[in-house]
């Protein structure tokens, strides 16, 4: 053991200052003088631990816990594959019964449009949608997108773009169409739970923008080597979620757009030629995505 501590401390002041600094750091963290960084959000473990299925979760400002029976009784129903297709309560989670009947009467087609169509469009997404915004903007659409955005935190008051939450953006504007492309960042999230979040988010958007057509874009794939290296976003995970997203759509006011048709290669992965890092399109190839959206627009 080192002897003569006084002599030693004099010849190694850094040891003492680091220890004192550590104590101060600890006190500062405990007293909230320094904001403690969050730990890594273990989506998968959280989802597995949480076996309850609620209509809303704690991420929304006015979260409401509602049991399945109460939801059916209140006619705020959600997707339930145990109900038959003809069951009026099997409304796929988006409408009240009256609204469902109203919407059934409307008709939509899918076709090509020009840029004017997107004057009242909103694009919601992560860094890839941000790339679309920067390099191939779709007409004069608005964007709510940023790196790392995911469906789990989408409606949270902590999630802001240019200082505004999504709810605020939806409250301040009237949109005719809303495009969503999210999911790659949470590729290994427990899919059924992830679809619940997605369904709840769309429901929230629906409440704030009742007249908007909602277009759920497929989660864009990554290249095969990227998926091997970063297993959370491998094709199998994204396929599972995309299949679930298809089931969420009713092809009447919520539509599924398979944007992967525009960017994949013969293996079904993102074409390596189109990407610099395996996940994002290169700046000069975002037009493929934009053009696909313009060729598969929902025309009332």
């Amino acid at each position: 053991m080192l002897k003569g501590s006084k002599k030693y401390l004099k010849s190694m002041p850094l040891t003492l200052t680091i220890i004192i600094g550590g104590v101060l750091f600890f006190i500062a963290c405990k007293t909230d003088v320094i904001a403690m960084p969050g730990g890594e959000y273990d989506y998968v473990e959280e989802a597995k631990a949480d076996e309850d299925i609620s209509v809303y979760d704690d991420l929304t400002d006015d979260s409401v816990e509602e049991s399945r029976d109460e939801a059916v009784a209140n006619e705020t129903v959600y997707f339930d594959d145990r109900l038959s297709v003809d069951d009026p309560h099997n409304l796929r989670g988006f409408f009240s019964i009256e609204r469902y009947i109203d919407e059934k009467k409307k008709g939509y087609t899918i076709g090509e449009v020009d840029e004017d169509y997107f004057k009242d469009a909103l694009f919601i997404g992560d860094s890839r949608t941000d790339g679309l915004r920067l390099f191939s903007p779709v007409g004069e659409a608005k964007y709510f997108c940023k790196t790392g955005l995911n469906i789990i935190k989408l409606m949270s008051s902590d999630t802001t773009v240019d200082g505004k939450t999504l709810k605020k953006v939806l409250g301040e504007n009237k949109f005719g169409k809303i495009y969503i492309e999210l999911g790659v960042n949470e590729g290994d999230y427990y899919t059924p739970r992830w679809l619940e979040y997605y369904s709840n988010a769309v429901n929230e958007i629906r409440k704030l923008q009742p007249d908007a057509v909602i277009c759920i874009q497929a989660i864009m794939y990554v290249t095969e080597p990227y998926g091997i290296k970063w297993k959370y976003c491998k094709k199998e995970n994204l396929d599972e979620k995309n299949e679930g997203l298809k089931e969420l759509c009713d092809d009447e006011s919520v539509f599924y757009i398979d944007i992967n048709e525009a960017v994949v290669d013969e293996t079904g992965h993102l074409n390596p030629e189109y990407t610099g890092d395996g996940m994002h399109l290169k700046a000069k190839y975002y037009y493929l995505w934009r053009d696909y959206i313009m060729q598969h627009a929902i025309i009332k």
Binding site: S127, G131, F135, T275, G276, D277, M279, H280, K282, A283, K284, Y285
Partner: peptide
């Protein structure tokens, strides 16, 4: 480096 890779080195 990552930001430029994302855009594509041939696009800058």
């Amino acid at each position: 480096q990552r930001e430029v890779e994302r855009i594509g080195i041939d696009c800058v």
